[in-house]
Amino acid sequence: MIPISFNTVSGGYGSLNVVQDLSGEVEAGKVLCVVGRNGVGKSTLLKLLLGYLPCRSGEVTIGGRKAGSMAPEARRGLGISYCPQERPVFDDLSVSDNLALMVKDGRLDGYRRFFDLFPVLEKRLAQRAGTLSGGEKKLLSFTRGLAEHQPAVVLDEPTEGVQWENIQRMAEMINGRKAGGTAFIVVEQNLSFAELIADHYLVMDHGRCVLIGSCAEIGRADIVKHLTV
C-alpha cells in the first residue's frame, strides 16, 4: 500500500491555480523531497494533500484511501502527520503542553529520544512556545510530528532557521524512521539537508513539475539549476 500518492492535482487560492497537474507518490520507508524556489507552489501542494485547500482537479490518496474532499482533521485518521511551515506550534501553550497534547496520559516519557537529540527542548519545557526562536519552534514541531508515529509524515521546510548540527540530527532521525517504514514528503530549500535524506526528488517551477526522479537519476547540479537565480 502506498502511504501517499497524488495524481494530476491542481489547485490554489481564489481564481488562481498555484499548482498545476502535479503527480507523485511516496512508498513506505522512502523520502520524497519537493524542491524549488520560493513562490513556485510547494506549500500549496502540501495544503492540497492535507485538505486545507480543495483540489480543483486530480485525486489525493492517503493510506490507500481516496481523500476526496475530506477535512484535514479527518485525513489525519488515514495515517498522516503534518508539520506546517508557518505557525508550526501552539504559541500560547507551554512547550510541554505542546508535546503532551497528543499523548493520551499527558506524560512526556515517549519523547526521551528527542530530548536526548535536542536537549534545548527539554531545557525549554516550561517556557511558552511563542517565546522560542524560529529554529526552536521548528524543532518542537518536528518532534511533535514524528512522535505521532504515523505511517506518513509531511514536513514543510523543517530546517528553516535551524542550526546545522540540529539539521544533521533531524536527518539522522528521519533516516532512522525510514528504516522503520515511515514515508516522508519533505518540502525543503536547503539542498544539503535534502541530499542527506532524499530518495526521490520532485522539482517544481511555476506550479508545475519540471523534474522528477530518484536521487540516482538526478544530480545536485540538475537541481541547483532550478534553485538558484
Partner: peptide, 24 residues
C-alpha cells in the same frame, strides 16, 4: 484539564489543531 488544553490549542492555532485531528 486536558479538554481545556485542547480548547486552548484549538483557539490559538486552529489550522495546526486540525492537522492534529482535533474536531475544530
Amino acid at each position: 484539564s486536558r479538554a481545556g488544553l485542547k480548547i486552548r490549542a484549538m483557539v490559538g492555532n486552529p489550522d495546526l489543531a486540525r492537522a492534529l485531528g482535533m474536531p475544530v
